[in-house]
Design a protein around this nucleic acid. Structure first.
Length: 127
DNA sequence: AGGATGACATTAC
DNA sequence: GGTAATGCCATCC
């Protein structure tokens, strides 16, 4: 959750990440959860930097995202004419690759998630 | 606690 | 490369 927001916030401008990528990076398992979390907690987060595996922005918010993309200078494909749904983010060119520092951040995030999930009692990890 | 929904992904046709 | 069907985990009612 928060980790997702943290990762999204970590994504540099002009760069995008797919829901699945974030899910994998955080090891949280579900791409839908990333979207679900964003839908509820994303208010001051660069949610537009999170796109689908198709390179298409959130459905229903494509226009809003397009504005941000133009502002960020994100490489787009096709032609964003007018409302334009014929366009698409150049995922191949904008796919953000976590740096070493980002990797450490992701590691910390995963640790946080792990700690949060550790609230499970009656665990047979001890003898 | 149970059922339905969701800003998605992946496989199959 | 498209559309259709199924699975995912969490949140909402």
């Amino acid at each position: 959750m928060e980790a997702v927001l943290a990762v999204v916030d970590t994504i540099p401008a002009g760069r995008v990440l797919s829901y699945g990528d974030i899910a994998v990076l955080l090891e949280d398992g579900g791409p839908r959860q990333v979207g679900a979390v964003l839908s509820r907690w994303s208010r001051d987060n660069p949610w537009w930097r999170v796109v689908r595996a198709s390179g298409l922005p959130p459905q229903g918010y494509a226009r809003e995202a397009l504005v941000h993309y133009l502002a960020e200078g994100t490489p787009l494909r096709g032609t964003p004419a007018g409302d334009g749904h014929d366009w698409r983010v150049d995922l191949k060119a904008c796919r953000w690759v976590p740096d070493d520092a980002a990797f450490e951040l992701l590691d910390a995030l995963r640790d946080t998630l792990h700690a949060a999930k550790m609230s499970v009692p009656a665990d047979g990890i001890e003898s």
